[in-house]
Write a protein that binds this DNA or RNA. Structure first.
Length: 795
DNA sequence: CAGTGAGCGAGCTTCCGCTTGACTT
């Protein structure tokens, strides 16, 4: 047995370090936190001094038992968790749970997984920093108190299963605020003037230095341009340079992967996890832009060898963000020699991004020569400007260019043709185009992470889970939206004549953007009204300052919590007792047909519109209609609401049964003889007639017949169907997989029942949970997973 | 892929941050 036990957080890290340390050291991983606050509402002694009660998490019991055994056998235990607040706490919990004496324990830290860094760490051990541990306890306790006291208020005042917290509630607020900003945004327009010239067969564009507010002003300007001379008045050449971006942190990786290859933040993280486990990149949850000495050196070697010494510019980046804890390196390839890797196409693309960004960060600046040609117009004081860029030295641009969030059509980067001052240009046309202002863009998952990071809210390990949580709770939806059409005016001066065109453009179309739901808005407003402090964008920053004081030993952690909890808990009690139930009710107007009032509100089954009052009179019952996807109680108009009451619509009859048309969760559909048929996009649910409906019903019957591959006389419930992923077994409402090699023609009933029996044995719990309500499904899955995990360990 | 929407009461939900798998129709 080896004399030294080293405990790190990540198993991949353990493997690497073991190689560096030799046979006297056993390196094990504890898989992050091993203990947490107990699950219930009484984990913290709020009546006393806020003493927390911890318990070993279920999924950590096995690893803790193993570490206990190994630590007993070892002479020295080296606690090598990360050097930040959470890492220090992990070491403390380990020392508590493993009953480690001070004499037997060494606390070591390193920021990079390189041999010299590890050996240096072993040379200079220290004790556990209890102040830092206390800062973590304060963080943990505060988050539990906020989350577990606020959420029940929402269950009472809004609806069940909702949640609130220091991080998620502010994330939702950002989305809600942005949506409202967009809703009240007033588009204004101005005319942008562009002249096009023919310069020895090539076209050059030049823009007027100002825009015109009205069409009349633009027209007056073009009038003056008729027959005018356009002369090169001045040529200015300005050298400039462009610097590479620092290597990736978690947040910047998520942003670039979203912009350049369209991955959501969870996708990016799970692919990065694979790359990390395969030893191809450094740790992917980091807030640091720092690179190890070794990495900088090997990048330099690689760049010098492959591109030449003029491309090398070794650079040490420093993190500007206050909240950064810098326990790890920036995300980089482990070996710069690995230009390409083996792996799935997704892995290759993400690796390529990480590789290029890291190598570019160690490369020279690009040298650019910018040319501005000023063009005067005879008889007019205003001038036009044509700009061009020439890349004098590509530097880092040889491998990588960072993208930006706003999709402004990029200007420049074009070379100007050779020009001479005094030269009179040959005009093709002058065009004044109406351009509209745009509101701030809706958030993508990645741009929301960027904003949260700027506010110091959340950590690299929680960005992706937070984004999932707010979607899972139904506060926020990731959606595409069709743009709307609008007209714009274009005036063109060509061959001394001015032409006016009205053209059409699409605006406001969105792809994978975050939209708030009614519930998201209700909860944000409710929390904002009663818990202003928690919803304040500066709340996390201000508590972080206090955590820092605790870490420096200038503040006692439970005193800090006490000061926060007193007033907070009083507000919780007060709100819980006195606030009204929130349903976002709004009066839209009067139904012209019945003269009754039309309302919208959010009820048990979601947002709906209602005509008429609730009353006891049976005949006077109000009419109801659910709002459609994308409609909000806050913004829906009376006209839009009235449309909702037009469905379901009786289309006609077929085979003595009614055909009805309506819109459901998956879009427009027909229902006939209790069978559902989707209405294709080319048909209009409000206008579809009986003949067309029958055509669709008959089409559906044919495709259903093709779907059925085999039936068994032994049991009519059992069928072989052709699905999206090939043939499968259906029994009643349950589906079962067929082995890929199985030929459908050769299937017998006995074989099918065997497969079903086998599936039910292994996936019995899963099958049972399928029937349960969706909410319970999650819980059932979790316990099932835990049980199997526990079983595995016993073996 | 229904249309539903009162109120009662039981029992359930929930936080953030550190780690991986185990899930795939």
């Amino acid at each position: 047995m080896s004399k030294n036990l080293v405990i790190v957080e990540s198993p991949a890290k353990a493997k690497t370090i073991e190689k560096f340390l030799g046979k006297d050291f056993t390196v094990k991983s504890c898989f992050g936190h091993i203990r947490d606050l107990s699950k219930g509402d009484d984990a913290i002694d709020v009546k006393g001094d806020f003493t927390p009660s911890y318990e070993v998490s279920d999924d950590k019991k096995a690893i803790v038992a193993e570490l206990k055994k190994l630590s007993k056998e070892a002479d020295l235990v080296w606690l090598a968790s990360d050097e930040d607040r959470e890492g220090e706490a992990i070491s403390w919990h380990l020392s508590e749970v493993l009953n480690l004496t001070e004499a037997k324990t060494r606390r070591i830290v390193f920021h990079e997984i390189t041999k010299p860094a590890i050996l240096r760490a072993i040379e200079s051990p220290r004790g556990i920093d209890k102040n830092l541990v206390d800062a973590q306890q304060a963080r943990r306790v505060l988050d539990r108190l906020v989350g577990f006291e606020l959420s029940p208020v929402l269950w009472k005042k809004v609806k069940g299963n909702l949640s609130a917290g220091r991080v998620q509630s502010v994330a939702v607020r950002l989305i809600v605020d942005r949506e409202r900003e967009i809703n009240v945004f007033e588009h204004t327009s101005a005319f942008r003037v562009i002249a096009r010239f023919n310069i020895s067969g090539k076209q050059m564009e030049a823009e007027l230095g100002k825009r015109f507010a009205t069409e009349a002003e633009a027209k007056a300007f073009l009038d003056k341009c008729v027959g005018a001379n356009f002369t090169i008045k001045n040529l200015e050449v300005k050298p400039s340079e462009k610097s590479p971006a620092p290597p990736f942190t978690t947040s910047t990786l998520q942003q670039e992967a979203s912009r350049k290859i369209g991955y959501g933040v969870s996708t990016t993280m799970s692919i990065a996890q694979k790359l990390y486990e395969n030893g191809l990149i450094t740790y992917m949850r980091t807030d640091s832009v720092n690179l190890s000495e070794l990495a900088i050196e090997s990048a330099k070697e690689y760049i010098t060898g492959n591109f030449g010494p003029q491309y090398s510019r070794p650079m040490r980046y420093t993190t500007k963000n206050d909240s950064a804890q810098e326990a790890h390196e920036a995300i980089r390839p482990t070996y710069f020699e690995n230009v390409e890797i083996e792996g799935t196409p997704q892995e290759k693309r993400l690796y390529d991004l990480i590789y290029k960004r890291a190598i570019a960060s160690q490369m020279s600046k690009a040298q650019i020569e910018k040319t501005i040609a000023t063009i005067s117009i005879s008889g007019i004081p205003e001038t036009l400007a044509a700009t061009g860029e020439v890349l004098k030295f590509d530097g880092f641009l040889k491998v990588y260019l960072e993208s930006t969030d706003d999709d402004q059509e990029d200007e420049g980067n074009k070379m100007l043709p050779p020009l001479i001052v005094g030269e009179i240009l040959s005009l093709i046309q002058v065009q004044a185009t109406e351009k509209f202002t745009r509101p701030a863009a809706r958030y993508t998952e990645a741009s929301l992470v960027k904003r949260l990071e700027e506010l110091g809210i959340g950590r690299p390990s929680t960005y992706a889970p937070t984004i999932s949580t707010i979607q899972k709770r139904g506060y926020v939806l990731k959606e595409d939206r069709e743009g709307k059409e609008r007209n714009f005016i274009q005036l063109t001066l060509q061959s001394n004549a001015i032409e006016r065109d009205v053209k059409m453009e699409k605006f406001g179309s969105e792809k994978s953007k975050l939209f708030p739901s009614d519930i998201g808005m209700i909860v944000t407003d409710f929390l904002g009204k009663h818990f202003e402090q928690i919803m304040d964008f500066g709340f996390t920053a201000s508590v972080e300052e206090e955590f820092d004081k605790i870490a420096r030993g200038q503040l006692v952690w439970n005193k800090m919590i006490e000061k926060f909890y007193g007033p907070f808990h009083a507000t919780v009690t007060n709100t819980s007792e006195n606030a009204e139930r929130q349903n976002a009710e709004r009066t839209l107007g009067i139904d012209p047909e019945s003269g009754k009032t039309v309302y919208v509100k959010v009820g048990r089954y979601g947002p709906y519109a209602q005509i008429g009052e609730n009353s006891d009179d049976e005949k006077e019952k109000p009419r109801y209609a659910s709002l459609r996807a994308g409609q909000l109680t806050e913004t829906i108009t009376l006209a839009e609401a009235m449309e909702l009451f037009k469905l379901p619509r009786l289309v006609g009859t077929f085979e003595t049964k009614d055909i009805k048309a309506s819109i459901g969760r998956f879009g427009p559909y027909l229902v006939h003889n209790s069978k559902f048929i989707s209405i294709p996009k080319t048909d209009d649910v409000f206008a579809i007639d009986e003949a067309r409906a029958i055509e669709l019903i008959e089409g559906k019957r044919i495709s259903d017949a093709n779907k059925l591959l085999k039936v068994f006389p032994e049991d009519e419930e059992v069928k072989i169907l052709n699905g999206r992923w090939g043939p499968y077994i259906a029994k009643g409402k349950e589906n079962y997989r067929l082995p890929k090699t199985q030929k459908v023609e050769e299937l017998t009933f006995a074989m099918v029942t065997d497969i079903i029996a086998a599936e039910q044995k292994t996936g019995g719990k899963k099958a049972a949970s399928k029937k349960a309500a969706p909410v319970k499904k999650v819980a059932a899955k979790k316990t099932a997973a835990k049980k199997t995990a526990a079983k595995k360990v016993k073996k």
